[in-house]
Computed example of a mutant assay.
Amino acid sequence: MFRSISKKASYVALLLTTACLSTTYAQQRFSVGPRVGLNLSTLRGEVTGYKLSPGLAAGAFVMYSSLNHFGISADVLYSQRGGRFPSTTNGITTTEFTQRINYLEIPVALRYFLTRSGNFRPNVFFGPSLAIPLSAQRVRQKLNNVDQPNTDNSSTFKNLDLGLLAGLQLNFPGFGARQRFLIDARYTFGLADITVPYTPVNVVPGANGTQNIYNSTITVTLGYGFGVGREHPSRYNR
């Protein structure tokens, strides 16, 4: 009788251990959620005088991770880029404005997870970023320290921007099961000239000759991921 009870107890313990391991090492393959944060952007190329300017980055993401180190993600973001331009003469600021370019940005990132499973899965990533301009304005304009009205200059910029991004993402357990906080830091290097051919009416202040001007953007966001679909046990921890 004692052997029978012992055998049953061992069987129950084995079941409980298997269940615990399955819960511990189950891996979420798909997740979705919101993302919001800060852009620090400027203009580079054949242009001088532009400083970093803050802007909003906000939207949503979907992410897939395989049962090993690799994954892929795609975002849809409202992304404010541009740069701050102070012009000085004899050490005195005479003209000042912030060039704001509002984009619908779609970055796609290939990700390499540094751990195969667990509650903390940091990853590095890189990939292309496609951005469609929605509008452009010069805001916070001053002339000889006198405030000026905002000016729409959307016609100065092309209908598409292409960039290359790279970055690091950290993630931590969220409030519920299959939920995670995501801290994402990335740099997007503009590959395409964002301005239309030069004419006297669409000149970009600070441009040196022809307007070969590119975006340069640092982005830091906080996201919150919700697991969707079924979880999969990691084949490395069975």
Rank of each mutant, 00 (worst) to 15 (best):
A26C: 04
K142I: 00
L191A: 04
L52C: 03
E105Y: 08
N119Y: 02
D161C: 05
F189M: 13
L160M: 13
A60R: 05
G82W: 06
S135K: 13
G229K: 13
Y187P: 01
I92G: 03
V228L: 09
G127Q: 10
I106T: 15
N202M: 07
L52T: 08
N150S: 08
G127A: 09
H69P: 00
S129C: 13
R121I: 00
A9P: 02
T221H: 00
P173I: 04
Y25G: 02
T221A: 06
P233Y: 07
Y187L: 13
A136D: 09
L16N: 06
N119H: 08
P205K: 10
G91S: 07
R140G: 11
K158Y: 11
V201G: 00
L77F: 13
R230H: 09
N144F: 15
G190V: 05
Q211C: 12
A207V: 15
R84D: 12
Q141F: 00
L67T: 09
R81H: 07
T195P: 05
Q148E: 02
G190H: 08
L191E: 03
V196R: 15
T217R: 06
Q99R: 12
T89A: 15
F157K: 10
T24F: 10
C20E: 08
S22P: 04
Y236F: 15
R140T: 01
G59F: 10
R180L: 06
E105S: 15
A131G: 12
P34M: 06
V201C: 00
S135M: 11
F157N: 14
P173L: 14
L110K: 01
P197K: 07
N68S: 10
Y112W: 08
S87H: 10
D184H: 05
S79E: 11
N39V: 03
L168F: 15
G45R: 04
V204G: 08
V36R: 02
E46F: 09
Q148R: 13
Q169H: 05
A19F: 12
L43E: 13
A57Y: 08
R29D: 04
G163Q: 14
Q179E: 14
G45M: 03
T156S: 14
E46R: 13
V201S: 07
T93K: 10
Y25R: 00
